[in-house]
């Protein structure tokens, strides 16, 4: 690897870490946050017949997990292209 390429690889990795870090922050917030730590407090609101915190724990976090993975698929591909490292 020449110097340019090495620098580009480092920049790619930093961009990737930022993306993964922000998605994992949401992952943590919806499950451990809304579904567990804040569950009782959130239960004062309802979504249909579900208490809100209970809904996050048994339904909502799973839907959010799905969105997170597909968001990662799309955004990671965009970063791959930007840095010219797509497979």
């Amino acid at each position: 690897m020449d110097e340019n390429e090495a620098e580009r690889a480092r920049a790619y990795w930093r961009a990737n870490l930022r993306l993964v870090g922000s998605l994992l922050a949401i992952w943590f917030a919806c499950s451990f946050g809304a579904g567990i730590v804040l569950r009782e407090w959130l239960d004062q609101w309802r979504i249909g017949g579900y208490p809100l915190g209970f809904w996050f724990a048994q339904q909502g976090s799973i839907y959010i997990f799905l969105v997170l993975i597909f968001a990662y698929v799309v955004l990671a591909r965009r970063i791959d292209r930007k840095f010219g490292v797509e497979d």
């Binding site: 993964v20 998605l23 994992l24 992952w27 499950s31 579904g35 567990i36 569950r39 209970f54 724990a57 048994q58 976090s61 799973i62 997990f65 997170l68 993975i69 990662y72 698929v73």
Partner: peptide, 25 residues
């Protein structure tokens, strides 16, 4: 889940949230 109600959430979140870690990490 039927017999533990909310406590059963550990399996629902635990056994799905792992796939986020798998995909991202």
């Amino acid at each position: 889940i039927a017999f533990s109600g909310y406590d059963g959430s550990v399996y629902l979140m635990g056994w799905t949230g792992g796939f986020v870690l798998l995909a991202l990490l």
